[in-house]
Amino acid sequence: MPEVTAIILAAGLSRRMGALNKLLLPVGDVPLIRKMVDVYSTAVGSVLVVTGHQASEVETVLAGSSVKTVFNTEYRNGQPTSVACGLRAASNADAVLIGLGDQPLLSADDIHALLVTHFSADRSRISIPMNGDQRGNPIVVPDNLFARLLADPKSPGCREFTRTHPEHVQFHPLASAGYLYGPGHPRGLRRPQSRNAGENHMQTIRQLAARLRQKFTLTPQQADHLATIKFPCC
């Protein structure tokens, strides 16, 4: 298989969690970001973590791992700047996986399945996993598109590019919930269309919150809050 580098985005301000940085919350016996690094390291040989907010704390929990870190000086300007920072640091790879630091259900098998699917399809396109009608992460970006993703300094990265250049994108149906954000990605929670829909959404939230409490050391209030967050796609 060609040389693949995983870029894990771990620079965000984590505003929704208040004073807490969700990447540092424990999943079992290790902080979430360390768990994610361990998962990616099992699947690919090279892992790069883009840091920003609380970079020193993130680097501390990664001590002893084989990953490299790169600090995004523009992290306050949003996720696209972190994607660009990671791409510049991984310029020698044949392809990169761009993933989030907060997907506790993602497994090494999920990553391997995505890579096999990508390299069995059109290697020149960006591969995005789909779970039903939901876009997932990580995504696979081939080296022939690195420069395109860095070309616009006002909007670097893959978020806008994958939506405005569909000819460079391929979607792969992959059923694992691990590709979604956290334990799930409830869509439309803010605008239920009927009383029954609203009740169904609340049941979904309660189920997600229960799963979050099993995965994390969180208060019930923190778990409820995380369960209703709609995270951006890369």
Results as ranks from 00 to 15, higher is better:
P186I: 00
L100G: 06
I7S: 02
G182W: 00
L115R: 06
C234A: 15
V30Q: 11
T228M: 09
S127L: 12
L24P: 00
V39Q: 00
L208Y: 01
H112W: 07
P80E: 01
I126H: 13
R34K: 10
Q207H: 07
S194E: 11
A43M: 07
T219D: 08
F71A: 08
N200L: 06
R206A: 13
I229W: 03
D29Y: 02
K215T: 10
E74Y: 11
V116I: 11
P232I: 00
A6N: 02
C234I: 14
Y40S: 12
R190V: 07
R123H: 10
A227C: 03
L62C: 02
V50C: 09
T164D: 13
R148C: 14
L9E: 10
V27C: 13
H118V: 06
A177W: 15
D94C: 04
V58Q: 11
R123W: 10
F161L: 12
A55M: 06
E199H: 01
T5H: 01
H112G: 09
S194K: 08
A19F: 05
R206S: 10
L87K: 06
T162P: 05
Q103I: 02
S41P: 00
M36E: 02
H168Q: 15
R211E: 08
K22I: 04
D143P: 12
D122P: 11
D133Q: 12
S82Y: 06
M130K: 14
G178L: 04
F161T: 06
R148S: 14
R195K: 12
L62I: 04
I33C: 00
P173G: 14
G28C: 04
Y181K: 09
P173D: 15
T162I: 13
C85M: 09
L87T: 07
L23G: 06
A175S: 14
Q214C: 07
R191H: 05
C234V: 14
A223P: 03
P220W: 07
D224R: 03
T219H: 12
N92K: 11
Q203F: 02
S82A: 15
Q221K: 10
L189Q: 03
Y40A: 11
V67W: 01
L208G: 06
M1P: 04
T51A: 02
L13A: 08
K68C: 13
L212V: 08
C158A: 11
L105N: 11
M17Y: 07
R123E: 08
P31R: 03
G136N: 04
D110C: 03
R34C: 01
S124H: 14
R211F: 02
H225Y: 10
K154Y: 13
P2F: 08
H165M: 13
K154H: 12
L114A: 05
H165D: 15
F119C: 12
D122K: 12
Q221R: 11
K22T: 05
A197F: 10
G52V: 05
S124Q: 15
G28N: 05
V67S: 10
I139V: 13
S82M: 10
L189T: 09
D143A: 15
T81S: 05
D38Y: 00
L48E: 15
V169S: 15
C158L: 06
L23R: 05
L13M: 07
L174W: 01
P26Y: 04
R88I: 03
E57F: 11
P192Q: 05
G86K: 02
R135P: 02
T228N: 04
Y75N: 03
V61N: 03
